[in-house]
Every structure is written in C-alpha cells, then in structure tokens.
C-alpha cells in the first residue's frame, strides 16, 4: 500500500518534470514566475506598490521624495511636450497621425513588436520614423525634445495598466528572448548582470543605495532624475546601470537595447503606469 503511494508520487513528480518545459514556455509563464518572486518575497507590497522602487525600502528617502512630489519637477516637460506634440509638421501632418488613438493613452503599450520590420520599436523610434516620413529631421535620442514628447505621451497613460504584447510571431518571441539574454548577461569587469542587483538584492544596500525591484521599475519612465537635472527615458537609465558595473553601455536604440526594453517592460505587465515620475 505504502509502496504504491510512493510510486505514484514519484510518477507524478516525473510527469511534472516532463511538463515543466511546457509550463515555462513563454512570456506569459515568465510573467507569473517573475512577478510571483517579488509577491512572495515582499508580500506586504502590492504589484502597484512595487513601482515605488527604492522608496519602498528607505523611509528617509521616501519622505524627501514625497516632499519633492508636491511640486513635481517634470510638470514643465509635460506642458512643453504637449505643445511640441500638437505642432504640425511642415506638411501639415502631426505626430497624432502616426499613432493609434492619436497618440493619447497608448504609452503603456510600448515598446511594441513591428510586424513590418520584424523588430521592436519604442515610442522614441516611432516618433523619429514619423518625422522622417513627414519630411522632418529625426531628433536625437535620450535628451531634449524627444524626451518632452515622451513625457507628455506617458502622462496621458497615467493609471493605465502596462500591456506589452508579444504576438504569436517567431520574430517577436525571438526579440523577447534576446531581451532576456541581455538582461541575464554578466557584463563589465565586475561581472554583474541586471538580476544581481534588482532581484535577489532588491531592498538591500549596495554602498549607500537601496535597490529597487526589477518588476515595477518601468512604470514611472520617462522619469525626472535629480542627478540628470532633467527627465530621461529608460534607456538612459539602462546606460547608467551598465556604466556603473564597468561595462561600455550598449548603444541606445540598438536592437539589443530595444529588446532589453521589451523584455524588461513586459515583466511589469498589469502594473499601473505612473509616469512621468521622479527619482534621485
């Protein structure tokens, strides 16, 4: 009797092992694992709470942050961004013509997989594509005008849940998987991958800095950073972390960076957008 019981458990375990690769087959299953890790570890925090990043773990900084948020330093960028957004190009067309829903309340669905090119595009890429198609010069990435546009567009998505789609297209899945590779790759002389600091070490201190959780990080980007004295997009932040670990940062808007953004944004699916935000 007892023997049979054990045997059937073994069989059950064995069949689970066989099914496992199927359970972990794709982005949907990843999402459950990734968000589950933090939900288990920080059971006192909701998924939306996670988007408060390091302020979940550092009372002092949280107070300073809340004081700053009384007069958010990104307000001007939203206003200027809206003006730029609505200014017609030389040919009379507008940014709104290049996006779904006139570009309003769509930021939480980017980056997207573009079936025409087979590549991932973030909003910055679509903005420049739109400009070029309408006879305007592309803007430089990461700073200046493009960031103001992003800031305004993100603000129109505030409160919407992040919704990154990986469509049923092998190229989309490959881009997602490539982003995962970039994320879990050790780089720099100190041999760090992103996960070292933002998963197991989340909530702990590296030097004087408390570390944020990987899940929830994207929700407030573009974000105003005191260190930058300006609002900046997430790829600027990626470059900062890469530099900090001693790596030559990947090029902004390269396939590797875009795929990283795709993968990294996907893991926050279902969490409310709260962008633009502020950080030290």
């Amino acid at each position: 009797m007892c023997h049979h019981y054990r045997l059937s458990i073994l069989l059950l375990l064995f069949s689970l092992l066989l099914v496992n690769p199927l359970l972990y087959a794709g982005p949907k299953e990843d999402l459950v694992r990734y968000q589950g890790y933090f939900q288990k570890r920080f059971s006192n925090l909701s998924l939306d709470d996670l988007s408060n990043g390091l302020y979940n773990f550092d009372e002092g900084r949280r107070e300073q942050w809340e004081a700053i948020m009384e007069f958010p330093p990104y307000e001007i960028a939203i206003e200027e961004g809206e003006e730029l957004f609505n200014k017609p190009f030389g040919n009379g067309k507008r940014y709104a013509d290049c996006f779904d829903n006139g570009g309003v309340a769509i930021a939480h669905t980017y980056p997207r997989f573009n079936a025409k090119t087979g590549k991932v595009q973030n909003i910055s890429a679509v903005i420049n594509e739109c400009r070029v198609a309408n006879g305007e010069k592309p803007l430089r990435y990461l700073k200046g005008e493009i960031v103001k546009l992003l800031t305004y567009m993100a603000d129109t998505s505030r409160g919407k849940k992040i919704d990154i789609q990986v469509p049923d297209d092998p190229r989309a899945l490959a881009a997602y998987e490539d982003g995962k590779r970039v994320y879990f790759t050790r780089r720099g002389v100190r041999d760090f991958a992103c996960y070292h600091c933002h998963w197991e070490a989340a909530g702990q201190k590296i030097r004087g800095n408390v570390l944020s959780t990987a899940v929830g990080q994207v929700t407030h980007f573009p974000s105003y950073r005191s260190k930058w004295g300006a609002v900046g997009p997430i790829q600027r932040r990626y470059k900062g972390c890469m530099k900090n670990v001693g790596a030559v940062p990947l090029k902004a808007q390269s396939d590797a960076m875009n795929n990283l953004e795709y993968f990294h944004t996907h893991m926050s699916n279902g969490i409310s957008m709260n962008a633009p935000g502020t950080r030290f």
Binding site: V189, R190, D191, F192, H196, E200, A201
Partner: peptide, 10 residues
C-alpha cells in the same frame, strides 16, 4: 554576485 576580483585581474 560577488565579482571575480582575481580572475578579472582587478
């Protein structure tokens, strides 16, 4: 996560 100080010749 501890860096390989010797292997990477730091």
């Amino acid at each position: 996560m501890m860096p390989p100080f010797g292997r990477n010749k730091l």
